[in-house]
């Protein structure tokens, strides 16, 4: 009987193949479909959180245009349209898919995790990330104060600014959604599905290491 390959090695070898593969699949095939699926969900999420500020979210190619109810101070019948780039957020799907495909588990289990993880875990999380990003952009136009390295526009708009503490929370939300969560959430989602594998393959090896060296 041939010896079983080390599961940790299998995982790293799988990750080397599956992560670039998942990225290529996301960029060349899935990115447009994901955008089309997510746009109505993000639009719905924004219309729930700030219904008085959002008209609609229109996908235009890979980017989205968020039409707000905000009017410039000198042309009150015009409406502010903001560009929202969903691509940087949907890259999280590729990371999740790559990790699941690299995990040493049966193929049926992988398929289950890919489907349920994409639909019921990653989708809501990515909708939340894009919504946080969009809310921050609206806040920047309303409050007109530099925050987290972002500068407000020159133009003023007709609308009450958010209270200071909410504006600062939006700043934190923007930093999390743009810089931290796209990398962290897919790993957490993958870990939530594969706690037992992580414990068996990764942590058990780490626990063994000091004994081996001694």
């Amino acid at each position: 009987m041939p010896p079983q390959p080390d599961p940790l090695r299998r995982f790293w070898r799988g990750a080397l193949l599956s992560l670039p593969g998942a990225l290529a699949f996301w960029w060349f095939i899935a990115v447009g479909y994901l955008g089309a699926l997510l746009a109505p969900l993000v639009g719905w999420s924004l219309s729930l959180s700030v219904p008085h500020l959002v008209v609609e979210l229109v996908p235009v190619g890979l980017d989205w245009t968020l039409i707000t109810t905000l009017s410039p101070i000198d042309s009150p019948l015009d409406l502010l349209a903001l560009q929202i780039p969903p691509v940087r957020f949907t890259a999280s799907f590729a990371l999740f898919w790559g990790l699941v495909l690299a995990t040493p588990i049966p193929w049926g289990e992988r398929g289950y995790q890919l489907l349920t993880g994409t639909a019921f875990v990653m989708m809501p999380l990515v909708v939340m990330m894009i919504s946080l990003f969009a809310l921050f952009r609206i806040g920047l136009y309303l409050n007109h104060t530099p925050i987290v390295g972002q500068m407000p526009p020159e133009q003023w708009y007709l609308g009450a600014p958010f209270p200071g503490w909410i504006y600062h929370l939006l700043g934190v939300g923007r930093q999390l959604s743009a810089l931290v969560l796209p990398m962290v959430l897919p790993v957490l989602a993958w870990a939530a599905f594969n706690g037992e594998v992580i414990n068996r393959v990764l942590l058990s090896r780490l626990r063994q290491r000091p004994e081996t060296t001694a």
Binding site: S47, P51, V55, E56, I67, T69, L77, D78, L79
Partner: peptide, 16 residues
Amino acid sequence: QATHTTALKRLLAGDY
């Protein structure tokens, strides 16, 4: 809300 959205879209298109 839907009526308001339609009205704003018409404003945006210049259909006052």
